[in-house]
């Protein structure tokens, strides 16, 4: 069973949650202009990623709030939890607390080395109030 770290309630068993499928699928901006192919894409086609997948979960028997999660669909390890509306965190590397900046720094090498020190709290909006980058014990 997954142990899921709800942004509002903390770690709870998977049985308290409801799965919502792929995250970041926006409603079409101009629905009247879509052709049948585009409607099919919106209604029926979702990514079916083998690996790190951004997905929605609802804490249905807790705070009843939706949130997003990055989870590996092979190992089932939960890599990040972040609010609805926030962009997908760039990290895919589960990092130990305190070393969270290291993996983000790797992504920012092209723009210099000053960013990392601030990134632990600000560039990972994701990563929830409960603090650490990767909820421990994602699966059990």
């Amino acid at each position: 069973m997954l142990l899921i770290s709800c942004p509002n309630c903390g770690s709870r068993d998977e049985t308290e949650f409801h799965y919502g499928g792929q995250a970041h699928v926006p409603y079409p901006e101009n629905p009247n202009e879509l052709n049948d192919r585009e409607w099919a894409e919106y209604l029926f086609y979702r990514d079916n990623t083998k690996g790190t997948f951004a997905e929605r979960w609802l804490h249905s028997t807790g705070c009843r709030q939706w949130f997003n999660m990055l989870r590996d669909t092979v190992t089932y390890d939960i890599q990040a939890v972040y609010p609805m509306g926030a962009p997908r965190p760039s990290t895919a590397v589960p990092a130990a607390p305190e070393s969270g900046t290291a993996s983000l720094a790797a992504d920012s090498t092209t723009t210099g080395t000053t960013a990392p020190s601030t990134s632990a709290t600000s560039t990972a909006p994701g990563i929830t109030k409960s603090g650490t980058t990767a909820p421990e014990g994602a699966t059990k």
Partner: peptide, 13 residues
Amino acid sequence: DSYNGYGQRGSFH
């Protein structure tokens, strides 16, 4: 199991 998975295993509940 409700979630997407390629792991050939699921949750015990």
